[in-house]
Structure formats: structure tokens, C-alpha cells
Design a protein around this nucleic acid. Sequence first.
DNA 1: CGGTATTGTCAGTTTAGACTGACGGTTCAG
DNA 2: CTGAACCGTCAGTCTAAACTGACAATACCG
Lengths: 190, 190
Amino acid sequence: MNAKPDERDPQREVEDRFIEVWSDISQLWGVNKSVGRVHALLYLTSDPLDIDTIAERLQISHGNASTSIRDLMAWGVVRRVTHPGDRKTYFEAEQDPWTWFHTTIRERRRREVVPVMERLHEAAGFAEGAGKGAKGKQREQLMETHDKIEKFADFAHEFVDLIDVFLAVGHGRMAKVFRTAAKLFPKRGG
Amino acid sequence: MNAKPDERDPQREVEDRFIEVWSDISQLWGVNKSVGRVHALLYLTSDPLDIDTIAERLQISHGNASTSIRDLMAWGVVRRVTHPGDRKTYFEAEQDPWTWFHTTIRERRRREVVPVMERLHEAAGFAEGAGKGAKGKQREQLMETHDKIEKFADFAHEFVDLIDVFLAVGHGRMAKVFRTAAKLFPKRGG
DNA sequence: CGGTATTGTCAGTTTAGACTGACGGTTCAG
DNA sequence: CTGAACCGTCAGTCTAAACTGACAATACCG
């Protein structure tokens, strides 16, 4: 009868489905599967959960659950909760998707975008320096390469601007804001 | 064998630096290292290149270069070029960053976002169905879970809207559009 | 304080994914 | 038609990342 005893519980089945979808979305963002699953579980569960409960519920090791929680805390999307008279530590996730998305973008900007932009400018500077130090045809080629790098850097800079405006405006009104803007600036040439 | 004979050539050194930065950016986007490096090389090199030249230049195997090119073509950011009277096949990259970014986003939407959104709606529907089929406290809990999934789905939907507006407006004017919008809709509550 | 419950860490193992290199198919020159 | 040059594919190997489970550290109880 019960080939999959867990699936007999509708509540658990509903949760599992959502958890798997969220997990896959996380992976598309470069977040590892377990971290995504833990995050999804905490989002669904209003009551804060402790490490062992999470590990058992998701069928992962204690260590894996602990590490995943640490990651999520570093991303600022999960909080530690303690109750006086209870030595256990519980964890709960931010419940508003827009809030954690905002947090995630801010953190990603700090960790990934900023360092990469610095290296990009370094590369452009190095190209320019090399070009100025060369002569004739080689100089010409180096300058051309420098222009290409600059072109890419300009693009990247605009992209970061976009992130910054998002961070400044924030939250769920983005789409509406965006749509209105689109009407004000109709697409050039069709 | 010299330790690093290549680095004696400034042109090559400049290129290498940029290629590594681009490669790391690609990895942040979930694109594999070799694919990113090939793309960067083709962006920098105005003349189309053939597979063997790419493989030798980047110190990767012929097979790896070929597979990377195939990926880039599937993403629509690299074109095949042939010259009559020359049996070799050459490849060239789109030279405008905004154009390929646009292409990439469109492709990602098709491949990743759409399927995941479908599964998300499925999950919500399943939750609703399970809730209606249950009674008492379990029904209550299922309905609560359904609401959570819906809340996330709403967020995801707005995110897709954002992508769609980007695809409609397109290109480098995004940041300006966005900034103007921000002024029109000042942030609520500071 | 000693005992116990619980979380955090990390060396070793497993797993997923990337890379290589050999092979087969294709095109073109002679 | 034959051989040479070249591209695409994929089985096998290699590498990097994730996961496990045992141990260390910490907090709390009596």
C-alpha cells in the first residue's frame, strides 16, 4: 500500500512540490540545491525550525543543514531565533519575497559585481598603458583592443546603474515603475 | 619549454586579462568557464576565428572549443562565417554588448523562466486542490500553504514582467529609463 | 561543576559536470 | 576517386563542488 509513505500526507506532498521548484530556481541563480531547499522549507513553515528538524524533513545530513543555514544567514535571508528556557536554536526565513530579493541583490552586488568591475577597470587601464608604451602597428592594435574593453566596461557600468536604481526604488512596485517608464520612452525605431 | 612565453607579447597579455575577467563574469551567470573564454576571445577579435585557432590560443582541446562554440551559437551570440574557396569554418561574436545581453535574456526567459513558472503554477494549483479536498485543521493548513505559494508566484510574475519590459524597451537606454522612473515614483516611506 | 543536549566544523567520500582525445563524417582539391 | 584538412561527437577521465558523519565546541540543567 504505502510505497511512498511520505506522499500519503497531502501537506507534505504540497510542500515537497514547491520546495523542488524553489530549489531549481535557486540553482539557476547559482545557489546550491540544499541551500535552496532549506530556504524554501523555512519560507513555507511559519514556525521557526531547528537544525535537526530541517535535516530530517529534507532527508539531508545534519552537517549539510547546518552549512546551508550558515549560507542563508550570510545572505541575510534567514534569522536565528531563540526562546528563553529552551536551549535549541531555531531559524526562520524572511516572509516577504520582495524583501529577500532586494537583500539578495544588494549582497550579490557587494560580493560579486563590485570586485569584478574593479578587475574590469584594471584590465582597461592595463590595455591603455600597454598601448601608450607601444609603437606603430602594435600600438594601433592595442588601442583597438582597449576600445573594445572600454565598450564592454561602459555596458557593465550601465548594468550596475540598473541594479542601483532597483536597490533605491526597491520592493514590489518595480514592475509598475518600469512599465510606466517604458510608456514615457517608447522604443526607438519600432 | 619557456615558463610563460606568451606573456611577453603585450597584445596577448592584455587580451588574457580581459578574457579572464569575462570568464569569471560568465561563471557568475552560470555559464561555464571555457564558453566564457571563447566568447571573450571572439568579442576581442574582430576577424572571425576557426576552431583550431581558438583551441590553440586558449590552450584548450579542440573538442572543448567545438562544444563551447556550439553552446554560444545556441545562445545566439556567435555566428558561423564561411568564405568561398576556403573549406574552413570561422566564427564571430556579436560586437554590441547590449545586443547580446538582450539576446541572452530572451533565451534565458524561454529556456529557464517559462518552464519554472509553469511548474510554480502547477504547484499552486495542486496545493489548492489538496486544500479543497481536505477538512478541518488540515484544510486550514493546506490553504495557508497555498497562500504562501501564491504570494511567491505573484512575486515571480512581477519579476517576469520586469524582464518583459526590458525586452520590449531593450538596449542601452534602460538605465536612463529606469532612473527617470525612479524620480516619478519616489520611494515609499523613505 | 559534570552531564547532556545541541550546534558548528571539517576531513574524507561521493557526485555532477567539464575536458580531453580518438574516431567518424564531410568537404574539397587534385 | 582518393587523400588531406577539418569539424562534430562522445566515452572515458579528470576536477571541483557538495554532502556525510564523526568529532569539537558551546550552552544550559541540576
